[in-house]
Design a protein around this nucleic acid. Structure first.
Length: 601
DNA sequence: GCCGTTTTCGGCCCGACTGTTTTCAGTCG
């Protein structure tokens, strides 16, 4: 059975719940919650780490939890962790899924109302509420009872916790609202906050902030709640408001004044892990942080008696000055994930991450040239693509149409198609006296057996190829690994296309031993693609970071099937930045000369 | 239970909101 990080994280969180209900030391509870957070956000499978004996080297997982996990992996259901969880009725955990019910309330309800049937517990609670029996329980009242009925209704619709949306969709929504608000009186600046500012691949809520003077905050909020895409207004106050747009997506807005805007921006950008670590770091220096600014910590050891200044808040107009006050280099939002960014910022060692302006070309664009492809054709001609690349300021572009269909077609036919294509490209493009260079490429399917869907005889008619999986996504890990490893051995393979095959919210990643694949790519100088296509964002950021540690190189591509999609390079850049890539790791941030040498190798 | 560029002991992130409360606990982000 495969044990996922999600399951282990859940396990640790449940133990924290049990301890909370048993009134054990508060910080022991926090330790379990922290460990759960750590596991949840880890970019490697915890079980793999356990197998390699490296568990205790993870920050947040100390000797005790290491020992418990070790026992869990060996003994499963009879381990300490499971036995601990079993001390609490399982119905408590089920009730906690209802919004507004945390451990204490859920436990009290289970105890007082004797809700022990796991299959019916939610309905049982609803019936008790309707019968008026919840209001009779101490610390509950009529309002709580009514709230519970509402919450259960919401819970049953399944709409209370929508699936996250792919980041590019959220980004587009945010830009639409931003544009809608732009002209309003008093609006000085609008920023995107939260996970969207960090460019996480999937987004829950969209958060926006507006710098505006108090005089106009009411009218700004008013305009916001009249956004044409709005379906409901959740709350609307003087300084903030929430609306839902189509599909139940929630958008929050807050109006802030400019003098403490830096602290606000920092706080609401997150991540939670980053903010917690930042506050711990600040506390050691005697400072306490909040969305309003920085003040002297009440508990700081170095506190001066009778000091009024500790109540005074230092305000910051910019994030740069906020971080700088703490003695830290500015940390780009994309890497604020609570790994080691604060440590590095302290030493002034945050690298300059790759930027859109570093990009000098791309390798993955589909044209309308009909070579009887195995998958979708693009809609634009080679000259149109070349022109677009020129407009983007690129030095080079590679045409990577899908390979010709191989079913019922003889190899010789495919070879002649590929030859004709190459000749056609060269004839069409030499005419137009271009200033930028191009490469004849091809995106070739990796077949289930690891062979590629292009006869070797055709390889003479391309400069390079991208190999990608487009079928048989569900294979056992060892088979999938050797499938890819075999594909990498073919000549002219320079890029492994959309390596995990994931489609955000639609198709999960293939199961592969990535360390084996990454080592091979590094050894063969084959770049891993960071596919910027909005549904893909593939490689995922965490794997980018892992591959980087093996010395891999990356090609950030849009996989455009229409020239306007070549503008989506931006999304690929965000993935690269989240993976801590500097431009030296990105092949298409290198000049033409370097690329020519790379392709020849 | 975890951790260390002020500590191997003595600390541990901050605030809003809500409901049930006479001063706070629980939940959420």
């Amino acid at each position: 059975m495969k044990t996922t990080n999600q399951e282990i994280s859940q396990l640790l969180r449940s133990v924290a719940v049990v301890y909370l209900l048993q009134n054990v030391n508060h910080f022991r509870i926090i330790a379990y919650e922290k460990a759960a957070d750590t596991v949840e956000q880890m970019n490697r499978e915890i079980k793999d780490i356990w197998e390699s004996g490296q568990l205790s080297s993870i920050s947040g997982i100390g000797p005790t939890i290491t020992q418990h996990l070790d026992e869990y992996f060996k003994k499963g259901n009879i381990s300490y962790l499971i036995k601990t969880i079993n001390q609490i009725p399982p119905t408590v955990f089920l009730l906690m899924k209802v919004p507004g019910l945390g451990p204490k309330k859920a436990f009290k309800l289970v105890k007082e109302l004797k809700l022990m049937d796991e299959k019916t517990v939610i309905d049982d609670l609803l019936n008790e509420a309707k019968a008026g029996r919840i209001a009779l329980i101490e610390s509950f009242g009529a309002k709580s009872q009514a709230d519970i009925i509402e919450s259960i209704k919401l819970y049953k619709t399944g709409n209370f916790k929508l699936e996250r949306m792919p980041m590019p969709i959220a980004y587009k929504l945010a830009l639409e609202i931003k544009e809608f608000l732009q002209g309003e009186k008093g609006v000085k600046a609008i920023d995107i906050l939260g996970s969207l500012r960090r460019m996480v691949s999937t987004i829950g809520d969209v958060d926006l902030s507006v710098v505006g003077d108090k005089l106009h905050s009411k009218t700004i909020i008013n305009r916001f709640v009249n956004f044409p895409g709005k379906v409901s207004t959740d709350n609307q106050g003087e300084e903030k408001a929430s609306i839902k747009v189509g599909n139940g997506r929630r958008v929050d807005i807050r109006i802030a004044n400019s003098e403490s805007y830096g602290a606000m921006l920092q706080y609401f950008t997150g991540s939670k892990a980053h903010n917690i670590k930042l506050r711990e770091y600040a506390l050691k220096k005697g400072y306490s942080l909040s969305e309003y600014g920085i003040k002297k910590s009440q508990n700081s050891k170095g506190k001066i008696q009778n000091d009024n200044s500790k109540l005074k808040i230092n305000k910051f107009t910019s994030e740069e000055s906020f971080y700088s006050f703490l003695g830290l280099q500015y940390i780009p939002p994309e890497i604020r994930e609570g790994t080691n960014e604060i440590e590095l910022a302290k030493q002034n060692k945050i690298p300059r991450l790759v930027e859109l302006s570093d990009i000098k070309g791309e390798f993955h664009v589909h044209s309308s040239y009909n070579l009887q492809p195995s998958h979708d054709l693009g809609v634009n001609t080679y000259p149109e693509i070349l022109n677009k690349a020129k407009k983007l300021g690129y030095e080079y572009i590679a045409f990577s149409d899908h390979n010709p269909k191989i079913t019922n077609v003889h190899d010789s036919e495919i070879i002649s198609i590929m030859k004709k294509r190459k000749d056609d490209i060269n004839r069409e493009l030499t005419k137009s006296n271009n200033k930028i260079d191009y490469f004849v490429s091809c995106e070739v399917d990796i077949l289930p057996d690891g062979n590629i869907a292009l006869p070797e005889g055709a390889l003479g008619h391309v400069d390079l190829i991208i190999v990608s999986i487009h079928s048989s996504f569900r294979m056992a890990r060892d088979m999938m690994t050797s499938r890819i490893m075999r594909a990498l051995t073919y000549p002219k393979v320079k890029i492994l296309g959309h390596p995990t095959g994931r489609l955000l919210q639609k198709r999960s990643e293939i199961d592969v031993d990535w360390s084996t694949v990454f080592k091979e790519c590094a050894a063969r100088d084959i770049a891993l693609e960071i596919n910027a296509y909005p549904e893909r964002l593939d490689l995922p950021d965490t794997l980018v970071n892992q591959a980087k540690s093996y010395g891999c190189k990356f090609a950030i591509n849009t996989d455009a099937h229409e020239i306007s999609q070549m503008d989506l390079m931006f999304y690929g850049i965000s993935v690269a930045r989240r993976g801590w890539l500097t431009s030296e790791y990105v092949v298409n941030a290198q000049p033409l000369k370097t690329i020519k040498e790379w392709i020849k190798k």
